[in-house]
């Protein structure tokens, strides 16, 4: 939080592009902070982008998402990983924090 908003941060654009790419996937409900809320990027301007963390070069990108229930998670994760790796080559750690249920699904509540 020592950065001032006036100073452009080349990493911020990448993080925001990654977040947009992840959120655009149809299986993704929202980004999430992961188990301890640690998957987040601190951006200049006192902003905190939860759900995407880009480490130092060589470190994996971490993303944490809440997925829509009803479709296989491995496929969605593979597609997310490919989408992120297309923007920032390298390993991608994906955390599926939760799934969001459609209330219309069976089991949405105990009748």
């Amino acid at each position: 939080m020592t950065d001032t908003p006036a100073r452009p941060d080349p990493g911020a654009a990448l993080v925001e592009a990654l977040a947009a790419a992840v959120t655009a996937h149809p299986a993704v409900v929202r980004l999430d902070g992961g188990r301890f809320g640690a998957v987040a990027t601190h951006l200049p301007g006192r902003r905190r982008l939860v759900g995407v963390r880009v480490g130092e070069p060589g470190e994996p990108v971490e993303i944490a998402v809440v997925l829509r229930a009803g479709r296989p998670i491995p496929q969605a994760v593979a597609e997310l990983r490919a989408a992120v790796a297309a923007l920032r080559p390298g390993p991608v750690d994906v955390t599926v924090s939760d799934i969001a249920l459609d209330p219309a699904l069976p089991g949405g509540g105990p009748s």
Binding site: P60, E79, V96, S97
Partner: peptide, 25 residues
């Protein structure tokens, strides 16, 4: 993705990163 079409384990380290699935899922 190495895990794309296969029904294999997602959580394994594929060299492209780890996948963590929370218990609540």
């Amino acid at each position: 993705g190495a895990t794309a079409g296969s029904p294999a384990r997602v959580a394994e380290d594929t060299g492209q990163g780890r996948t963590t699935i929370a218990a609540s899922v």
